[in-house]
Amino acid sequence: MGLLVSLDVLLEEANVTRAARRLAISQPALSAQLARLRQVLDDPLLVPAERGRGMRLTPRAAQLKSPLHELLTRLEDLVEAPYAFDPSTAKRDFTIALNDNAAMTIGLDLIERIRKQSYVGLRLAMLQIPRDEVLDLTARGRIDLVIGTRAFMPPGLRTHDLVDDRFQVAQRKGHPRGTAAMTLEQYCAYEHVLVSTNGSYHSGIDDFLAELGHYRHTTVSVQYYTAVPPILERTNCLATLPERFLHRFDHMIDRFDLPFAFDPFQLQVGWHPRFDEDLGHQWLREQLIAARPF
């Protein structure tokens, strides 16, 4: 069994040093296990990559990788499945993947709900991950829940709707535009701040405006939603962001309905089906659904 666990990590990392670090054993000890695995399976499993950079899997190793991991995962689920889950006595770490919009919209309420109960054995981590890593990390149990838009959820996850939201436009208090309803001309006249994970100055709203024959000038692009309100507070820029997020910053900004019709959206929670019957996982999902704002 120990050799199979080591093989699983070796095939994932394709690097003896990193695999040994994950397994918390010495590199010579893991190299000895690799030699034994090569003998048993009659295959080198890992061979030097072209140009001498790292290692690559042999065809036999590549064939074994996914079935072996799935088998070990099912065995782990069977062994670790609790007969009951009591949050007042349980010791468990939960990890939720979400951006800072979802953290402000839903995450704060979830943290408040759980911490008010003083569940001292439970810890909660929130982090951002790229969409193309979601399915793998949830399948491996490194991420418990994912919160995002419907478009963010990859096929293969269970999902549940959390909240409906829509976009509004925000400006600083005392903005020279005043506080009357925003017109399309004003919307396009001022500079804009955009949230983008890759530094883009373009979004779906720009495509929508182009269809109307209009254009907005985006001069600032930031990776995090929470960076926008302080920027608005110090400039005359506008920003188009989710209403529920902007509501958290009403003490800093004024917000208005968009001067054009733009589709609302939903935030969902997603999880891997292998955790459907995990009692602790069920409890966390229940807490999230109960904590969502209305």
Rank of each mutant, 00 (worst) to 15 (best):
S66M: 12
P48F: 04
S31V: 12
D161E: 07
E70D: 15
M1G: 01
L72Q: 07
D136A: 15
P67C: 08
W283A: 04
A291T: 13
I111P: 00
L46K: 08
R140A: 13
F294E: 14
P130M: 02
A180L: 10
Y225L: 04
I289C: 00
H281D: 02
L7F: 09
E50S: 13
Y201M: 14
L232C: 05
F167H: 09
C188L: 04
Y187T: 02
Y201F: 15
R38G: 09
H251R: 10
G280C: 07
A62R: 15
L284Q: 08
T183E: 01
V9Y: 00
L127P: 02
E50P: 05
A62L: 12
T73C: 05
T95H: 06
V40D: 09
F265C: 07
Y201H: 14
I114M: 14
F152L: 15
P242D: 06
E50G: 13
R166M: 00
E133Y: 14
F275L: 10
M182V: 14
S31C: 10
A239Q: 03
Q268V: 12
L279S: 06
T235H: 05
S31T: 14
I25A: 07
D43T: 11
D278E: 13
I111V: 15
L71M: 13
L279M: 10
R92C: 05
I253C: 11
L212S: 06
R140F: 01
A81V: 00
K65V: 01
S196R: 01
Q266K: 14
L246D: 03
E70F: 11
Q186P: 03
G148Y: 04
P67N: 11
T17C: 03
L258N: 02
S196T: 02
H202F: 12
R142W: 12
H160V: 02
E243R: 09
M104H: 14
D109L: 13
A90L: 07
N101W: 10
A261H: 14
S200E: 11
G156K: 09
R285L: 14
A170K: 05
G270S: 07
L279Y: 11
D257F: 03
A181H: 04
R216V: 00
